[in-house]
Design a protein around this nucleic acid. Structure first.
Lengths: 210, 210
DNA sequence: GAAAAATTTAACCGGATGGTTAAACCCGTG
DNA sequence: CACGGGTTTAACCATCCGGTTAAATTTTTC
């Protein structure tokens, strides 16, 4: 199993508070708001319910903090790379590597974000939305330039970005479904996902040939 | 908003039982086992809790029936197309059209399947798994033949299938996330998803050029 | 119109769960 | 040692929720 990265809130690295928060992070991300139980979080942090409420007043508040931490870690990483000062080809190359690694380390995060937005749209769009969403305009311009120069086949920049994202994220997120659809063992799937980076890059660059 | 297709169990089309089942289908698929409340299902079906239990004994049983219906409708449709007797290029073409339509009509279904498997793996793999999972071997053979004939660039059949699936499914499932990442309004996103079929097909066939 | 089935009403039970409380305990620091 | 914050224990409350029940009411069917 992959370990989930536990985010660093501005706290002492190994304080009880941090351990509780990490436990909450893990449980919430895997089970969602409804599926997560406070007792389970306490158990997972190696403490008891009383202390849990001593540090974090309510489930709602704790969830809100976790959810904020999740998206405030997920989006800026993408943004940084997508805004970087780097040739398009290199940017795509690094993006695929980076993103597949990122999602592999946090396979439940995309599902968590999408699922919770679906289940509790109000709270999410009120409380959790990031202050600064990614701005892919620069990437779009780079694609348009490359098209204009004839370096790549004409293509909609938006669709290209979504294609890249899809091929990186979906197989990891949909892992249990792929096992069924493709009839692969867990072993085979691990091997398959390891090959992905190179396969995805090859596919993208093949599709971009003029 | 897209309407979700409500599956036809072998029941009278407009019976109370069917109305309840449809309501349960909708609520379960959107909110999952934990998030769905029996009262909500009853409300949604326009009846009361007592009658709900009169028709369907327990939440578990009802959920099991709904989950079975969901996957027994989702997978055979794919399988049929993927096993069809049809040239590879045409098969891909139709598959993209068909699959984007299917997911657009049931945007919550993939998330539901993946999420529930993650949250309750035991029950799912015991009770719900389809008797006959898709067998993509034929598709794989077609790809290998096309490669051997030089009709398409060399490519791993498995990765090709996953790429196609990813680009079809992910954007629809991740719609709320895309809104944030790409900074698009709901209107723009609708337009974007309409363009998808042609863009995805163009992308795939471009990537397959020898 | 009577019998049977469908549906409502309303109350209730029991367990799980979020949350509280008070007392005791542990443990490091001044 | 005494003080105080961290921590445990254990009991407890309120609420929600799945599920049941019994009777009344409506609708269907014969």
């Amino acid at each position: 199993m992959d370990n989930s990265e536990t985010p660093t809130t501005p706290e002492l690295p190994d304080s009880t508070e941090q351990r509780i928060f990490d436990a909450a992070h893990q449980v919430f991300v895997q089970k969602g708001l409804d599926g997560a139980k406070m007792q389970e979080i306490a158990d997972h942090a190696g403490i008891n319910k009383a202390l849990l409420h001593y540090y974090f007043r309510t489930k709602e508040k704790l969830f809100e903090m976790v959810a904020k931490a999740v998206i405030n870690r997920a989006f800026p990483a993408v943004q940084q790379l997508i805004e970087a000062d780097m040739p398009l080809e290199q940017k795509i190359d690094r993006f695929v590597d980076f993103y597949i690694d990122l999602i592999s380390r946090n396979p439940f995060v995309p599902l968590f974000i999408i699922g919770e937005i679906n289940k509790h749209p109000d709270q999410f769009f009120e409380k959790i939305i990031p202050a600064a969403p990614p701005r892919p305009e620069r990437f779009f311009r780079q694609v348009e330039e490359a098209v204009a120069e004839g370096r790549i086949r004409p293509i909609s920049p938006r669709h290209l970005l979504v294609n890249v994202l899809s091929m990186c994220v979906f197989p990891i997120v949909a892992r249990p479904m792929l096992r069924i659809v493709m009839g692969m063992s867990s072993q085979e799937l691990n091997q398959f996902l390891k090959e992905r980076k190179e396969e995805v890059k090859a596919f993208i660059f093949a599709a971009l040939r003029p």
